[in-house]
Nucleic acid binder design. Structure first.
Lengths: 149, 149
DNA sequence: TATGAAACAGCATAAGT
DNA sequence: ACTTATGCTGTTTCATA
């Protein structure tokens, strides 16, 4: 699939404001509303746009403490990596999970209510798992969601 | 600010689908549309909802190669951390920037068109900066955006 | 394939209970 | 906080180029 300049401008506009009405979006990009509608629909159907999400501030939603936990698995557990990836993503407070190549196997981006909650998360969901070799918790002081789009 | 059960359900629903119409949202949560409208407005005004964004697949938008680059700064550059944080967030291809406590100062989550593009990013934006002590590039094989909400 | 017009449907808003 | 009513805007379809 090939994206032209107009598509990129549509993506940029919707990444900035997912609720931009079709009329306003069309005007912003310089095409007719009907054209705009079909283009956006195509972008969704092709999977270029995966969805529209509200960006909730974890701190104001009761989880002020964020961390990225680096996880290394035991060598023999390689076959279970993908299953574990999705298992982690279902846990409360988990924001993102990254499957990596390199020194670590996972980065788990998590938001916890407090220090105890974070510790509990690591112990109960990671350390307790015999496939997990080691974890390394990095506290997040600031998180900037970039505008790219 | 205190969030009740209804607020949490609103947040969960909008985090899942930012474009859910107010009517449908109200029905889903079990409140009247007008009540729903005012509650969502409050959540936005208070900053609990920071915005609504389209989730664009970087791979299908011309940037199939993702990485998380760990960055350590020189000791004397601590005062410039925040400025650098926002500077990084403006660069093309940058998805997230995390300011950390611990062994590393930053994690930079970036999407590049290819291997050369990724290398260029690290060299031109990080290595070239005298405040940067070292970088460690971790390739991302899979990325799951968790459903928490 | 993009456009423009016109009919339709559906929502946001604000009143009153 | 809910219900109802109103005005309006987005959305869709179709014909056209």
């Amino acid at each position: 699939m090939r994206l032209d300049e107009t598509d990129h401008r549509l993506l940029a506009a919707l990444a900035d404001d997912a609720r931009l009405p079709n009329n306003a979006l069309a005007a912003k990009v310089g095409i007719a509303p009907s054209t705009c509608l079909t283009r956006v629909r195509h972008l969704r159907e092709k999977g270029v746009i995966r969805g529209f999400h509200a960006d909730v501030d974890p701190a104001l939603a009761g989880r002020p403490l964020q961390a990225i936990i680096a996880v290394r698995m035991q060598g023999h557990a390689r076959s279970r990596l993908t299953a574990f990836l999705h298992q982690l993503a279902e846990l409360p407070g988990v924001l993102n999970v990254f499957l990596l190549g390199g020194a670590h196997d996972f980065f788990v981006h998590v938001a916890a209510p407090d220090s105890d909650g974070l510790n509990d998360f690591v112990v109960e969901n990671l350390s307790v798992n015999p496939d997990v070799a080691l974890t390394e918790t990095n506290l997040i002081f600031r998180h900037v969601r970039a505008s790219w789009y």
